[in-house]
Design a protein around this nucleic acid. Structure first.
Lengths: 124, 124
DNA sequence: ACGGCATATAACCATGCGGGCATACTGAGC
DNA sequence: GCTCAGTATGCCCGCATGGTTATATGCCGT
């Protein structure tokens, strides 16, 4: 019921989903793999179940959690119209890397290495 | 700098992005379109700028905010390995719609209305 | 220089969320 | 039945976050 956006906001939950993507896992396995407390894992699993992103089955004395990827389609649908945009822009960027664009006022370009002079902030 | 997942967790910010996707807008336009307070919009725009999802340019006395979709690629990349999964499953589902699926233990937490037969709860 | 519009920020408040600890529950085996 | 492994939940805390109101800042026209 809660939209998948909120669920994915937590990095731990993304990790859990990544683990469940490989294969179904029990709570204990997740606890070991993530090296975090068991209640913490259980709580995140609750959120994932409520969001329809995971289901649980009773296996022996433990519970097997399985990924249910369908709700992610909603995220994908939202993302779809944006995909073309950044793809186009990456094309353009590659096409003329030498052209120095005007510097918009917004600081922090995604330059991972090219951090040199902090642009004058609006009001420090 | 903050990962786009957290930024997209807020529905208002998703709306703002959707509006900016059509065309660049000033703060005032966003305020009118969303019918929310101006400081609220400004705060969300700050978050979007910090995440690299929007840039601002000074136009006359107002500011033009423009979408910068590149950071969304990270989200898309995370989503990619899941896409195949739900697509496959939708295929299978369509293929035999008549087969009644087994009811896993996972219940419907807040089943308010359209719930017909409550599946066997863990502890009836 | 001044007034006013457009926007950003500060201060403050309320709520929600993630995490830890302790505890209750469930199911299997004895 | 009891016990134990495995898991879920309750309670509490700290903190980040979103919202509001009031105010500061910036830019333009006069």
């Amino acid at each position: 019921m809660p939209p998948p956006f909120e669920v994915l906001a937590d990095p731990t939950r993304r990790l859990i989903l990544d683990l469940l993507r490989e294969r179904p896992r029990s709570v204990g396995e997740l606890v070991d793999a993530l090296a975090i407390s068991q209640p913490r894992v259980s709580k995140h699993l609750r959120v994932l179940r409520d969001a329809g992103l995971a289901t649980s089955r009773v296996r022996a004395q433990s519970r097997l959690y399985t990924l249910r990827p369908e709700p992610l389609a909603e995220l994908d649908a939202w993302l779809a119209p944006y995909r073309r945009l950044w793809e186009e822009r990456l094309d353009l960027l590659e096409r003329h890397l030498d052209t120095i664009p005007e510097t918009p006022e917004t600081p922090e370009p995604p330059g991972p290495a090219g951090e040199a002079a902090p642009p004058p902030e609006e009001r420090p």
